[in-house]
Write a protein that binds this DNA or RNA. Sequence first.
DNA 1: TATTGTTATACTCTATAACTATA
DNA 2: TATAGTTATAGAGTATAACAATA
Lengths: 152, 152
Amino acid sequence: MKPRETPIGLLLAQTAKVVGQAFDDTLAAAGGSTSTWLVLLALMRGSHRTQRDLAAEVGVRGPTLTHHLNGMEQAGLLTRARRPDNRREHEVALTDGGRALFHRLRSAAAAHDVRLRQVFDPHELETLRALLGRMAQTVRPPASAGRGLEEA
Amino acid sequence: MKPRETPIGLLLAQTAKVVGQAFDDTLAAAGGSTSTWLVLLALMRGSHRTQRDLAAEVGVRGPTLTHHLNGMEQAGLLTRARRPDNRREHEVALTDGGRALFHRLRSAAAAHDVRLRQVFDPHELETLRALLGRMAQTVRPPASAGRGLEEA
DNA sequence: TATTGTTATACTCTATAACTATA
DNA sequence: TATAGTTATAGAGTATAACAATA
């Protein structure tokens, strides 16, 4: 009876749990959270127009984004206003406070990343990136790849 | 201006999110969930005596474990009874239904793992294991390692 | 008193369904 | 009607504080 290796999926899940928790803690200490960080990051990138785009970028559904935006707006991090040219669409704009938090969280996230990187040499880091990238694509084929799993 | 690489922490978080979601879906399709799976796994391992041990093994606090055990007991997956020798401690025992679900989820998890493994050769898999292991230890030093970060 | 576990309560993140406002 | 976003509601997972039971 060979001593079964931990399934790679379980190992990844466990790793993600502790690493993710550590990341949460880091951001919390800087006055934020992972979801706030992801929203701020997407807003700063600016590669969106509608909240739908934004939600997709953050990786959540519309109501979930609305939920986060509500909290962030109340915290004075951003404002929402209907676009004059198409009043269905809402323009989400960061306030100075929002930008300030972004920078603080970015520093915290960067410091966290430095810690993570410290145990890897550049080659390992690249290897890890590549492997994680392939793993992600394994479970989530890049959008327009066709499903072809159950439909054969 | 170099086009900043995605921080490794963020990449790991994103990967974990999609891979974890896929794993959840897999288990849900088999009639379970990740937390149920982790509890079943720990129970089958049997390397615990008290619920405290069990909670630690699963990676949650006491009340969270109680919460899950409540649901699983109601679902007929397990029973709880005070130990005669020390009535403070509760013996958690899987029912036939619990064991059946364990096997079903194990199959589902195994199938999921096969999919994940398909994109890696054995060497890559070993590399990935090693890198993930070191990453986990970076943020969560193995228990009795001493903290020595803020206390220098 | 110390240990084991539960109850009460609450928070975060997420989602679906139904709704409003606009086009 | 179709699209953008919000509201209402719910559920899963987690936690802390206070409690009960047992030793």
